Amino acid sequence: MVDYIVEYDYDAVHDDELTIRVGEIIRNVKKLQEEGWLEGELNGRRGMFPDNFVKEIKR
């Protein structure tokens, strides 16, 4: 799994989504079957977030 950095703020709409803020690092990200969404861990919580608000961290 890979990590992503947040490029744009996003406020969660549903309980299974993450609220993300610019500059945060989302860890252990995986792609979901639902197009346009990823799932990852942030601040001890796992949830979904839109893939166009983040950028993969290349290592």
Rank of each mutant, 00 (worst) to 15 (best):
Q33N: 15
R27Q: 10
E41P: 01
L42T: 04
E24Q: 07
K55W: 02
Y8N: 05
Y10N: 03
H14A: 11
G44H: 04
R59P: 15
F53E: 10
E39R: 04
A12V: 00
L18M: 08
L38G: 00
D15T: 14
K55M: 08
D16L: 10
R45C: 14
N43M: 05
K55H: 07
E24F: 06
E34P: 10
N28L: 02
G36H: 08
R21E: 06
L42A: 06
K31S: 10
Y10L: 02
D51T: 14
K30L: 09
E39V: 09
V6P: 00
A12P: 03
L38R: 03
R59K: 14
E39Y: 09
Y4I: 01
V54D: 01
E17S: 04
K55N: 07
K30M: 14
E35Q: 12
K55P: 04
L18W: 03
R27V: 11
E39D: 04
D9K: 05
T19F: 01
T19A: 02
E24N: 05
E39T: 07
V2H: 04
G36C: 05
I26A: 03
R27K: 07
I26L: 11
K58L: 02
N43T: 03
M1S: 15
N43D: 04
Y10M: 03
I5E: 07
L38A: 08
I5L: 11
E35K: 14
Y8A: 13
D16R: 15
E35L: 08
R46L: 08
V2L: 11
E35R: 13
I5V: 11
G44L: 04
R59C: 14
V29M: 01
P50C: 04
M48C: 13
P50Q: 05
Y4Q: 02
Q33A: 12
D11V: 13
E39F: 05
N52Y: 08
Q33M: 08
V22C: 06
E7I: 14
N43R: 11
E17F: 04
I26C: 04
E17V: 02
R59A: 06
R59L: 15
H14Y: 07
Y4H: 03
T19Y: 01
R21W: 04
D3H: 09
L38E: 01
F49K: 01
A12Q: 06
R21A: 01
E17K: 04
D15A: 13
D9R: 05
Y8I: 15
H14Q: 11
V29K: 00
E34K: 15
Y4A: 08
V54I: 03
K31H: 14
D51E: 14
L32W: 07
A12T: 02
A12C: 06
I25T: 12
N52G: 10
L32C: 14
R21I: 00
G40C: 02
E7Y: 09
D9C: 03
D3L: 07
F53M: 12
D3Y: 09
E24S: 07
M48G: 06
R21N: 01
V54G: 11
L38H: 03
E41A: 05
N43Y: 12
Y10C: 03
K30S: 10
M48I: 15
I25S: 04
G36P: 10
D51Q: 06
E34M: 14
G40A: 00
M48P: 04
E39S: 12
N43L: 06
F49Q: 01
I20R: 02
E41V: 04
E7A: 10
D51W: 05
G40M: 03
E7Q: 10
R27T: 13
V6G: 05
R59V: 07
W37C: 03
Y4P: 01
K58Q: 15
I20V: 08
D9P: 11
I25E: 04
N43E: 09
Y8W: 10
N28K: 07
K30N: 11
I57W: 09
Y8L: 12
G36S: 06
D51G: 12
E35A: 12
K31D: 05
Y4S: 04
V2C: 12
R21S: 05
L42R: 03
N52I: 10
Y8Q: 14
E7D: 07
E7G: 06
D9H: 08
Y10R: 13
R27S: 12
W37F: 12
G40P: 00
V22Q: 15
Q33R: 11
V13D: 10
H14L: 08
P50N: 07
E35Y: 08
K31V: 11
A12D: 01
E24M: 05
I5T: 06
V6N: 00
E24T: 05
E41Q: 06
Y10I: 01
